[in-house]
Design a protein around this nucleic acid. Sequence first.
RNA 1: GCCAGAAUAGCUCAGCGGCAGAGCAGCUCACUCGUAAUGAGCAGGUCGUCGGUUCAAUUCCGACUUCUGGCUCCA
Length: 615
Amino acid sequence: MFSSPAFFRTIAETGGSMASKKQSAESEALLPIRHSTAHVMAEAVLSLFPGAQIAIGPAIEDGFYYDFDLPQSIKPEDLEQVEEKMKEIINGKHDFIKSVVSKEEARKIFSDQPYKLELLEDLPEDEEVSIYRQNSFVDLCRGPHVENTRELNSGAFKLLSVAGAYWRGDENRTMLQRIYGTAWKTPKELKAYLSRLKEIEARDHRKLGKELDLFSLHEDAGSGLVYWHPKGSRIRLAIEDFWRWEHLAGGYEVLYTPHVGKSTLWETSGHLSFYNDNMYAPMDIDGQDYYVKPMNCPFHIKIYQSDIRSYRDLPLRWAELGTVYRYERSGVLHGLMRVRGFTQDDAHIFCTPDQIEDEILEVLRFSLRIWKTFGFEDIKAYLATRPPEKSVGDDEDWKTATDSLKRAIELEGLEFEMDEGGGAFYGPKIDLKVNDALGREWQMTTIQFDFNLPERFGMTFVDKDGNEKRPFMVHRALLGSLERFFGVLIEHYGGAFPVWLAPVQVQVIPVAPAFEDYARQVKQAFTAAGLRTDADLSSQRMNAKIRLAQQQKVPYMAIVGEKEAETGQVSFRMRSGAKKNGIPLDEAVSEIKNAAESRSSVDPGAESGAPAAEK
RNA sequence: GCCAGAAUAGCUCAGCGGCAGAGCAGCUCACUCGUAAUGAGCAGGUCGUCGGUUCAAUUCCGACUUCUGGCUCCA
């Protein structure tokens, strides 16, 4: 466990684990269909690729896959042929026949399927195993399956992609070829699913990031490093301003710490021995090794240790937007979601053991409030407890910590799941997963106890009785990393940010060049009110300007022409398509200002029922 | 890192063993316009990099770089 980045694993993951979708009751009902379709696909592949060996083929969220060891590589173009063969098999109305056989018999049946034989070896010797047959195909399988291929709809499945996958997920073993597919009860459901995939594609933050000119990545200048463009930076500023203000109001102090530190610091923290694989190579400064920081915690601890701390000083809540760098393998990098350099919205809470319960409750409340402001209402908690293998800290502390985490979740009435033994070796934790507008679940917030670092650094506070004691330490990453959070935010809103976050809150559009002067005045009025405003004074026609602003998903367009210039008014066209003509300028200013200050996620004009036009 | 696919103008993409293409964006000019594209013209490229095959390579082959999809779901 210690060889992989299991050390500080979840903190590391706030750098970006991919989203997985919520498991719904409905998809469980689809399980036999998907699993059976996987078997049908395996049969089709075996008949089209003689000599193919089969590995495993489970049903997964939204579909299924099957892993093969094929004599030649399968290409995406081959999928169509496999699909045709599958339809043929399905239409053959074959029964799925279960039989229970001894392991010995199973070995004979799968004598030409080495992967199945290996799976057999892992099963208890005395136990019987079940096999499923349909048509010409037989698989070692626990089931369940549908009874007959007629229960599969030949128009309700689709093969989606081919990919490499290691046998048993172990990168030291054979690379198999995996075919992913999806299967549903009816063609209509398949269609709905495929259009969902399309919607996900349309909201892809990499695509929107380009279209809305928010950020870029430059392979030639280094993979996994994010460049924030002016418009993306405007959003980040709005996020950070809100973040800082909330933290200060919530009793946090904001810190700034260095980007690099001497090797001794990382030796003390243990990062060099446990997290080395994810750290960048040291740089030599005056004969000393300095490392770019992969985490902020040691620096916060140094600040803690810059003075003697009394129990009266605690709790200390210290937050930092700390930019860290971690080596990620090239194949896992993904837009803003998985990067090599990112800014964590980190915080560390140092407190006495009897303060811990209040502190945890407070940090949880704080996190939920922030998430709601960003428009994420559907949040689930995962409580991870002490791992059975090696871990640090004494039982009593673990119990206090775990109890306080659990109580906080219950007090907040959060839906939660227990992850028994899923904690890091250094402490229990709560992870918060948020659901976005498309129902995808993202692991974002992590609140983790740490019984390791205070020990390693020998942190103390002087208690009432005059004795030096060990403080409790809690790591908290709320949004995770600003980069990844930005990616999630872009996809959540599909680029149509709420007014308080929109890079351009109002776009002033003159109907003709004659009204450019008035457009400038209007822009000035909005700008003076602290609104992010652009005026489109290009030589294009008004319709083209509106189209552009609409494509840029600007929430308000202020259209000005003769009528407006004469009366000191503007006319609104909202991103939602709603229109509102002849508004006095000062009213227009305060309307947008109110929308921004309320930090509402409701789209302006949406209440009037006009749907957001999408072209 | 590994498997598969990909890399052509700022963007989206077509093409192909024999002169490098389109739309959008950009620039210039004209149009003076009321809620999703006014028109015309111009400019824009070492076809990712290096090597090989060939009379000839953007095209075929190889290596490298980078990107994309995957590498957790267990018979």
